[in-house]
Design a protein around this nucleic acid. Structure first.
Lengths: 237, 237
DNA sequence: ATGTAATTCAAACGTTTGTATTAATTGGCT
DNA sequence: AGCCAATTAATACAAACGTTTGAATTACAT
């Protein structure tokens, strides 16, 4: 398996692009190699099989993304001029993914969309890969969030974090959907624009009282004066 | 094209099940008809083609779902014993979808998951169908939410509503993912359980101040302030 | 019972798929 | 030049795909 080659990386780029836009099984190796101006057999030569090609694509950007997220998380700190910690943590998780997918600059522009598409395909040989490379760093963020919102049950934090994954997933599958849904009124713009809409919504959602509302619902957050009243209403519903 | 038949509805059920769990292109008609204990040619006989079979599946539950949503929306009203309007509206949108997908009771248990999977497949002949049957009722909900949160820009409401679509989409693709991600600590349970976690998070997210914060946003929002927190909601309700 | 329509069935069609094999070509070394 | 390894190209292959066909079977009128 030769490690470096011009056509190898061309195949990698094209495959990433095609798989991301139309899924894995829906893209044939003939179409793929034709688009990459490579021979049909070159996939086998460089990667061994179509499956292993997908493996190579996946791992090309998965670890860099996770590293970027963890570095951003490490830079989070409370301070006077800065946003609240929750906002910082959420941004640390979202923006690396948005940067690489919404902004069409880097070579990995379509990778995060690829992962989003693959999730829906239920490819048996990918379940482990996604779980391993993804959920470990996710749990790090879950813990960071929970430390900021100790009044929340850990179960509730996990639920809400999975909601965040859902939002991100949906945005990455098709960043332009918001434009169609809004009949052109909303523009996804660049990753900064998207994050500016995402972060306040998510951060405020995290600050909602938990359904198992521990009695300390008054303490951790100032300005939450009427929160207890709303809580009884909700548990009643 | 015969309208009614025992095998026809069996094909419809099995196809809905298989497409939902593994996507459209990944399921062959041979496997499908075998599982439905029908002949290979029966798909052509009853539906014309594989594509038209998917059409039939899609429309079998799309309009009932939208009708249930709109009816629930019509039942929303402010009142002393009831949750705030935003919570009611969010629940009116989410629960019909969760009912039919998470609870494995009705025949359409897997339909909403099917739609979620199909979105990632970029099937050219489905783009219009999804847009037509789905976005119209969505916009009705957007307007209802905006009426409750008039301080928010309409652009911001649309953004946040698309976040809701993302969360729902993600939950429906694989309701059990939360169990794996949480290493077994979270249980999706039934649709009511899920909605109890979803609604507070989303409702509170909607109440976050907009980034274009029209009222009382004197200073630039370096701290992502929540000055106007929920005053808007109280004046509206 | 008989005839007609509705339905099911087995078999095959032509394509396209991923994979495999073998030959042609290229790019450095000595 | 000549040679060897790396790479690309061309072709073949079996399997699986959606589709089509026409006969066999069933259901149901009269």
């Amino acid at each position: 398996m030769p490690p470096e080659s011009r056509t190898r990386s061309r195949i990698l780029d094209v495959a990433e692009d095609l798989f991301a836009s139309r899924g894995y099984k829906n893209v044939s190796l003939r179409e793929l190699t034709a688009a990459a101006e490579a021979n049909l057999a070159s996939v086998r030569y460089y990667f061994g099989s179509k499956d292993q090609l997908l493996y190579a694509i996946y791992e090309r950007y998965c670890t860099p993304l996770n590293n970027a997220r963890l570095q951003r998380l490490a830079e989070c700190a409370p301070g006077d001029g800065r946003p609240p910690m929750i906002e910082q943590i959420i941004a640390a998780f979202l923006e690396p993914a948005l940067d690489v997918s919404v902004d069409a600059v880097g070579g990995g522009a379509r990778f995060t969309r690829l992962r989003a598409v693959l999730i829906g395909e239920n490819l048996d040989f990918l379940e482990d890969l996604i779980a391993r490379n993804f959920d470990t760093t996710s749990l790090t963020f879950v813990e960071a969030i929970h430390k900021e919102l100790p009044a929340l049950g850990s179960e509730e934090v996990l639920w809400r974090f999975s909601f965040v994954l859902g939002i991100l997933h949906y945005m990455l599958i098709d960043p332009n959907r918001i434009r169609r849904l809004s009949r052109g009124r909303c523009d996804p713009g660049d990753s900064r624009t998207m994050a500016r809409f995402l972060v306040p919504f998510i951060a405020e959602g995290f600050r909602a009282p938990g359904i198992d509302a521990p009695t300390a619902a008054v303490a951790p957050r100032a300005k939450a004066g009427r929160r207890t009243r709303r809580t009884d209403k909700e548990t009643a519903a």
